[in-house]
Simulated scan of single mutants.
Amino acid sequence: MIKRKKPGSFSSEAVVLADRKTKQLCKRLGSEHIALIDHADVDEMAAGSLLDTGVQTVINLSPYMTGQYPAEGARRLLAAGVRLYEIPANYDNPSMIDQLNGCQASLTNSQLRFSTTQGVETIIPLQMVTTEHIQAKWTEANVTLDETLSLFIDNTLQYASREKDLFLKPLCQLDLRTRMENRHVVVVVRGKHYREDLQTLHAYIREYRPILIGVDGGADALIQAGYIPDLIVGDMDSISDKALMCGAEIVVHAFSDGRAPGRWRVSDLGLDYHLLPAPGTSEDVAMLLAYENNAELIVTIGTHTNMIDFLEKGRKGMASTLLVRTKIGTKLIDAKGVNQLYQPRWSWKLWGWCIAAMLTPITAALMINPVARHVAQMLWTQWRTWAF
């Protein structure tokens, strides 16, 4: 319940839901809750997930923007009218996530009050995050962007040098029922603008019938757009049970040493799966899998391709992606590139439907209008006289 006291004053009472992983929290978050996250430099995708839940108040144990790079999340949340708060840096309580999760609390004028299981009332001071605060951090981030880029490049090249032999070797061979040889393959990741790109490629997908690979939550993205994935690849940490049970073939991405926490989730659902140990990210593995199964063309949607994308994912470099894209580059194209190059082909069937659509109103007019019907009968009589 939200109460307005006077201008500049705000009060609300609600259940707090908390999680150290924002994407996990969003699965159970609703508009009636207060969200408690621990997410430095909130990215655009996380902000979008929070907005989808309808939540109106978000408290962050970490800074919404540290100033290291221009993260978009806080700006997007503020623009949507969401109230943002941070815990002061001098208030250190590592167990706060566990203490507050599921707890009834009241938020009044930048103070969060709740009672512990022992009945002790606790007051946590909050700092309200304003547009001016985020704009100042945004300016700071742009000033330091060149230094951040330099460190990012150094890290990328260092790890690329160490890991290049891993990516030169072929992946473990899997006995897949999904045949990709000489087929177009679309790899969908739930990254920036994936919804728009899927909509843009609707005509292309309808005509070419490509193999559809969903990378973790990318499988949910395909289902939401009205498609059924042929293959699901990932560590299974951000995909729904509904998507896992859609009938697609499942490839669980494991660490190079064989560890795969996601396999237990698939096993618990009673589903068959393939285990694929490989370095790099799951989207890298999905592209490599299509390449090594002799796909004719690999189209990517929502994949991470630049420094900001990777910093938002908490990765300080993009060595694996650089190596994979270098290896398969001749067959790789971004969704926006397909939209620019692809033109729908006109078929005789389509022409037939167009002609039928044009003739239908003309025929109806001839049948209804007596003058038009009389003229048509005269023309028919004249034609028969001439023909015979």
Rank of each mutant, 00 (worst) to 15 (best):
E312R: 11
S240F: 03
F114P: 03
L269P: 05
L149S: 14
H33F: 08
S106N: 08
I301T: 01
D268F: 08
G270Y: 06
F152E: 04
Y91I: 12
L17K: 12
V251Q: 01
L61R: 14
D284N: 08
M245W: 04
G247P: 02
S11L: 11
Y208L: 08
M128C: 11
I123W: 07
P229W: 00
A254Y: 04
P88Y: 04
V266F: 03
W348T: 15
V252I: 09
G234E: 01
F10C: 02
P88T: 06
L379T: 11
G73C: 04
P170I: 06
N306Q: 09
K164Q: 14
I362L: 14
A243F: 01
A243V: 02
D175F: 05
S347L: 14
T131D: 13
L168V: 15
N93W: 09
M318Q: 08
W138K: 08
Y91M: 09
G218V: 00
I355T: 14
W264R: 14
R373D: 08
L149V: 11
K27F: 09
D309W: 02
N93M: 14
N339M: 14
T144Y: 15
G280V: 01
V188K: 00
L244G: 01
V251I: 07
E312D: 14
H133W: 12
V375A: 12
A376P: 02
L174K: 03
L231T: 00
A136F: 10
I124E: 01
P63N: 07
I328T: 06
T363R: 11
A254Q: 04
T122P: 05
T300Y: 00
Y64F: 15
L198W: 00
E181P: 05
L61S: 10
N93C: 14
L149N: 09
N90I: 11
D230I: 00
V324R: 05
V371R: 12
G352H: 12
R183M: 01
T108H: 06
H202L: 09
L168A: 15
L366I: 13
C103F: 11
Y204W: 11
M358L: 15
L323N: 06
R373N: 13
R76I: 08
A141K: 03
V251W: 00
T116L: 08
G30T: 15
H202W: 09
E207I: 02
H202A: 10
R384D: 09
E132S: 10
G102W: 05
R265Q: 07
A278N: 04
Y159G: 06
Q343K: 12
T300D: 00
E140R: 13
A141Y: 02
